Lab assay of single mutants.
Amino acid sequence: WVPTKREEKYGVAFYNYDARGADELSLQIGDTVHILETYEGWYRGYTLRKKSKKGIFPASYIHLKE
């Protein structure tokens, strides 16, 4: 896992994603996520609506905010 280059990196989910394991994070369309790390097509972070739950999710489900 590699920390993100920018201190504040955010994105928005444009697909729903159902977590398949305890380390994964479920997403709903429109969720804003804070991205902490990246690795081979995956991000690690949390949604702003539930900051206490961190997990991994596919990068392809996220539109990055500039």
Score class of each variant (00 low, 15 high):
Trp1Ala: 08
Trp1Glu: 07
Trp1Ser: 07
Trp1Gln: 08
Val2Leu: 10
Val2Gln: 12
Pro3Gln: 05
Arg6Leu: 11
Arg6Cys: 15
Glu7Gln: 10
Glu7Gly: 15
Glu8Leu: 08
Glu8Tyr: 11
Glu8Ile: 11
Lys9Pro: 03
Tyr10His: 10
Gly11Phe: 05
Val12Tyr: 08
Ala13Val: 12
Ala13Gln: 01
Phe14Lys: 15
Tyr15Trp: 13
Tyr15Gln: 15
Tyr15Ile: 15
Asn16Leu: 05
Tyr17Lys: 00
Tyr17Asp: 01
Ala19Leu: 02
Ala19Asn: 03
Ala19Pro: 05
Ala19Gln: 01
Ala19Glu: 03
Arg20His: 07
Arg20Ala: 09
Gly21Val: 05
Ala22Gln: 10
Ala22Glu: 12
Ala22Cys: 10
Asp23Glu: 12
Asp23Ser: 07
Glu24Trp: 04
Glu24Asp: 05
Leu25Gln: 00
Leu25Asp: 03
Ser26Lys: 03
Ser26Thr: 10
Gln28Asn: 11
Ile29Tyr: 06
Ile29Arg: 10
Asp31Gln: 05
Asp31Thr: 04
Asp31Trp: 05
Thr32Met: 14
Val33Cys: 03
Val33Leu: 05
His34Ala: 13
Ile35His: 01
Leu36Gln: 08
Glu37Phe: 08
Thr38Gly: 06
Tyr39Ile: 10
Tyr39Leu: 12
Tyr39Val: 07
Glu40Gly: 13
Gly41Val: 05
Gly41Lys: 06
Trp42Phe: 04
Tyr43Gln: 00
Tyr43Ala: 05
Tyr43Glu: 00
Tyr43Lys: 00
Arg44Ser: 06
Arg44Trp: 15
Gly45Ile: 06
Gly45Gln: 03
Gly45His: 04
Tyr46Gln: 04
Tyr46Trp: 06
Thr47Asp: 06
Thr47Pro: 05
Thr47Cys: 14
Thr47Gln: 09
Thr47Ile: 15
Thr47Met: 12
Thr47Lys: 15
Arg49Val: 09
Arg49Met: 10
Arg49Ile: 09
Lys50Gly: 09
Lys50Ser: 12
Lys51Ala: 11
Lys51Tyr: 08
Ser52Asn: 12
Ser52Leu: 08
Lys54Pro: 08
Lys54Gly: 06
Lys54Ser: 10
Lys54His: 12
Gly55Thr: 03
Gly55Cys: 06
Gly55Ser: 02
Gly55Leu: 03
Ile56Cys: 11
Ile56Met: 10
Ile56Asn: 04
Ile56Thr: 06
Phe57His: 03
Phe57Cys: 04
Pro58Glu: 03
Pro58His: 03
Ala59Glu: 04
Ala59Gly: 06
Ala59Asp: 03
Ala59Asn: 03
Ser60Val: 10
Tyr61Glu: 03
Tyr61Ile: 15
Tyr61Asn: 07
Ile62Asn: 01
Ile62Ala: 00
Ile62Cys: 08
His63Tyr: 09
Leu64Lys: 01
Leu64Gln: 03
Lys65Cys: 15
